[in-house]
Design a protein around this nucleic acid. Sequence first.
DNA 1: ACTATTTGTTTGTACGGTTTACTAAAGGGA
DNA 2: TCCCTTTAGTAAACCGTACAAACAAATAGT
Lengths: 397, 397
Amino acid sequence: MTVSERASRTGGRTLRLSTKVLPEEARGHNRALVLQTLHGSGRQSRADLARTTGLTRVTISDLVSELMTDGLVVELGYRESSGRGKPAILLEIDRGAFQIIGLDLSEYSVFRGAVLDLGGQLLSRSEVLLSGSVGAEATAKVFALIETLIGLSTAPILGIGVGSPGVVDGDGTVLGASNLDWDHVELRKMLSERFLLPVIVVNDANAAVLAEHSFGDADGDMMLVKVGHGVGAGLLLGGLQFFGRHFSAGEIGHVVVGADGQRCSCGKSGCLETWLAAPRLEAALGAATTSAAREAILREAGVRLGTALAPIVAVLDLAEIVLSGPTEYLAGALADAAVETIGRLTMDPLHDTVSHTPGSHDAVLRRGPAVRMSALADDIVLRGAAAMVLSEQLGFS
Amino acid sequence: MTVSERASRTGGRTLRLSTKVLPEEARGHNRALVLQTLHGSGRQSRADLARTTGLTRVTISDLVSELMTDGLVVELGYRESSGRGKPAILLEIDRGAFQIIGLDLSEYSVFRGAVLDLGGQLLSRSEVLLSGSVGAEATAKVFALIETLIGLSTAPILGIGVGSPGVVDGDGTVLGASNLDWDHVELRKMLSERFLLPVIVVNDANAAVLAEHSFGDADGDMMLVKVGHGVGAGLLLGGLQFFGRHFSAGEIGHVVVGADGQRCSCGKSGCLETWLAAPRLEAALGAATTSAAREAILREAGVRLGTALAPIVAVLDLAEIVLSGPTEYLAGALADAAVETIGRLTMDPLHDTVSHTPGSHDAVLRRGPAVRMSALADDIVLRGAAAMVLSEQLGFS
DNA sequence: ACTATTTGTTTGTACGGTTTACTAAAGGGA
DNA sequence: TCCCTTTAGTAAACCGTACAAACAAATAGT
């Protein structure tokens, strides 16, 4: 075999090698592939799985029997005979086999949590009022909330997912969450030692973007802008979450937009948060008397958002921006102004309205990105945190 | 084995599963790992490789013997005895075993090419004047240049790497390169059919960022801004090149910066290119009479660059921005102004000068990104294209 | 000279996936 | 009705990959 023949076999992706790959891990990969296929394409037979994955029927049978003994996959009985040949036995993921604890710590006055099944559906929920707790007192409320949720669960728990405000590193340590007064809190370590379960802690916007990808109908390149007490974003690039070198990717709240902004708590003036954060919008809209004035405020916020996003959209080739937060502010004039602004600052005006080269590779003449509200409601962070657990423990979401 | 035990074994990275993994491919991965280790850490013994990769000495011996029959690795003889025990046999990548053809089609008036060894060193070079050729005539000049370079090569050729202007898709088709009048030119297909060699075609800025990563001393998160007749960028995120959904990631040349810019060829006004492209800077500087006026022009360009980059730096958590292009314009006042602008628009002024939490995870209080000139000279695209071939064919660069 | 240490190889084993061959169950056609 | 074809799922034999145990070779220290 020549060198080039061998390389062409490997698929030639540009990847970063870091660790050895043992056959054992390859099997784990294939097992996850089966689960992912079963999750994405619904109920199907072993032979179907073999066809879609490229593995042989023999191997699929082996993997499926392993997944069945784990309780993750169940047989549903014979398929309605659709042709000649032996009828197929349909398989499905048993979404009740395990349950997941999801937490959202990003709201200002309450910690919310839920028990979810493997399909990401909420089974039961609980919450605890923050009442100004910070530091260890807030941590204790997290423990108590999980305790309650474990009591509400009705199946073995696959893991605990937490969406936290602030910057969270790869070890699940909250490096800084100012409103909770957390600084280098080793949340993942503390929780996994206490509950003896797999625990994942990520930033709330990063959890949200995964939820939108898993449960909404979004593709693999997306930016989710989460507006609440602050402004943050989560990135999905090429189907992978992107956290950044210092785990602070998506921290766009303190980018200055324009020279004429209000004072920000960080010390600068005109940060995106001063234009867009919910308390700021609320205050500005409260002072407005006419509906035209309200509209102008929202349009102005949208223009500022679009101004900050335009270079990002261009450099990341984004087709989709999702907004999450108070719909009454974000949808409508604000989103419209953002779309217009991004288009004005990035699109080619000569080609914007024509489309003489239809096809999937129409890169040069593409339109500006869609800006839309999240398809998920207030539970986006909860569900994203659960999806993180699914993704890490079972390899799909 | 429980589900969670199994998952923890897999390392739990958030990955996108797409294809099955066979033992054969796992071995290809490990073979590339050996090459990468040997490349990164210099000459070492089989036992050294076993220790650093985590594979056993037996497996390493097997992989190495395979690489030696391919001619990629050679024994250098015994190591100077450094202690007790049987002396080790040092191994090294034979950088002369194969050669690579690298092409840079991004300059305005000339196609440049070179023959490189596996270490990325230029062995010989050739170029062909464009003389206004476009379309098929330009393509013919590419063919002729490669023909010449193959004649200059003195070892089997591993592959051909091409850095092209414009948008290039994943199949190596140039979707649009206006100055060459190329529209959907299937360059990779044409070249590989003609020369029967592996061929890789990528955008010039994407090639450049890989060169900077491979041959400069840059880490895995970087943006390279390439200033020439236009302005483009290449992205390296988490150690992986990022091309974007429509293969137009990094296309920042036509982002509008400010409301007071000159007319751009695209129809808008104030595009980044109008501030920064080499012909524009040249014209502006030519009209300046005093050195203070020249400095002001360069500072203004740097401010505009920084304004466009600030949101990008924040959202991608970038620590490093590399400039490539005419040093006499880019280095100095322009780069300084860009750094200052980015800092002014993104950094926390209260914490910018203090650093009370030293450590690798110091995310909240980090400084603004470094903006520096490329460590590589004019051959950056050539060498990046060659690095693409190395990376795809051998799994290292 | 003897021992401990390190390198690299030989030999046998466990595991993963495939190929080949088989059984079971259905439809179609003479 | 009988036979053939088709499809689903399984069993056995085989090949490739990596490991563990054992070994030979070479060297330093005592």
